[in-house]
Computed example of a mutant assay.
Amino acid sequence: MGVGIKLIADSGSTKTEWGVLGLDQPLILKTQGVSPYFQSAEQIKQILEAELVPQLPADSEVTAVYFYGTGLSQPKNLQLVSDAINIVWPRATSDVQHDLMGAARSLCGHKEGVVSILGTGSNSCYYNGKEIVKNNPGLGYVLGDEGSGAYLGRKVLQYYLYNSFDEDLLARFDYKYHTNKDEILENVYRKPLANRYLAGFAEFLSENREHFMIQNILEDGLNDFFFNHIYKYRESWTTALHFTGGIAWHFRDILAELCELYELPMGKVLRTPMEGLMEFHR
C-alpha cells in the first residue's frame, strides 16, 4: 500500500491547480480546467487520468479529494464532477464544492468576509465563517461575469471591432493577435469554450495599462463588478472585502482604489486560493 495523500483542487474554466498533502513536501500540480457546463463526466475522467494521475508519485494512494470548481452550485453539475472523481479514485473520500466555498475557506478561514473571484469568470458571496450565507447570482459570460477576464476581453474585442482604438493601440493589437472579424466571430459564436477565448484578450489590458483607453476599460469593467455585486451585500461596509483570481491579482491596485473611493474595507488579494486551502485542510 502506497503513501496516503490528499488532493485539493481549485478549478476554473481555464486551468485546475492541484495541491497534494501527505508527502514530505506539499506539491502543486496543474491540469487544464474542469467545467461541467462544457465537459461530460467521461471527458473530466479523461483529463484526470491523462493529465493528473501521471504527475502523482508512483508509490502514493489518494485517500481524499477536496474539489472546488466552477459551476458547482447546481446539483447536477456537482454530481457530474463527483461521478468522475469516484471513477478515477473509487476508494477515496470526496468532497466537491463550488469554487466560491474554496475561495471563502482560503481567504477567510473561519472568519466572516465578503469574498470575490475575478478570474476567467466572476462571482461573489458573503461568508459567515462557516457557510456562504448570501450569493449574488453569477449569470455566466453571456449575461454577467462583470469584471472577469471574459468580460474585460469582450470589451477589448468590442473596441477593436468597432474601430474605437486609436492607431497606436490598433497596431499593437494587430501585432499581438493577427486576427480579424471573421475569425473572432467564429471563435465566439461557433467554437466551444468561448469564455476562455474571450478571457485570452485580457492579457492585452495588462500589457498596455499606461494607455488611457485601456485604463478606461479596466476601471469601467471592475466598477461594473462593484456596482452589480459588491454593493448588493450590506456587509461590504462592515467586513473586509477579499479577492482571488488572475484578474484580481493583476489589477489589485484598481480594486484598492475602488475600495478607497467607495469607503469599503479592503482585505486580502490572492492570485489563487491554493495556499489558503492547503492550510485549511492541513
Rank of each mutant, 00 (worst) to 15 (best):
A50M: 10
L170H: 13
E131I: 02
G140P: 08
R271N: 15
K6R: 15
Y231M: 13
A9L: 15
T120K: 08
Y233I: 04
T238D: 14
I117W: 12
E260V: 04
R190K: 13
R190Y: 12
Y126R: 12
S206A: 12
A104D: 12
D168Q: 13
R271E: 15
D174W: 03
D24N: 13
L143K: 10
K176Y: 13
L170K: 15
L218M: 11
F227L: 07
F204Y: 09
E235S: 01
H98L: 03
I28L: 15
L157P: 04
D24G: 10
L78G: 09
T272L: 09
Y126I: 01
L56P: 00
N223I: 06
A64N: 10
S73Q: 08
R91W: 05
A202K: 03
S40V: 05
G276W: 12
L222D: 06
E167T: 10
I28N: 11
F38Y: 12
T63C: 12
L152D: 00
T244F: 08
L241T: 02
G245D: 10
E167Y: 05
E51C: 01
H110R: 13
L7P: 01
A103Q: 12
L143W: 14
R271K: 15
T70D: 01
L193N: 15
K45M: 10
D174C: 04
K15G: 02
P26T: 06
V20M: 03
A150D: 07
G109R: 11
W89R: 00
S60A: 14
S164T: 01
T14E: 04
E112R: 06
I85S: 00
N77I: 03
A64H: 14
D145T: 07
I8H: 04
V65N: 10
N180K: 09
L52A: 06
D168F: 08
G144H: 09
M101H: 07
T179E: 15
N223W: 07
S148Y: 03
L100Y: 06
V188C: 01
T14D: 03
Y126V: 01
L198C: 05
L107H: 09
I117E: 01
V142F: 12
R209Y: 12
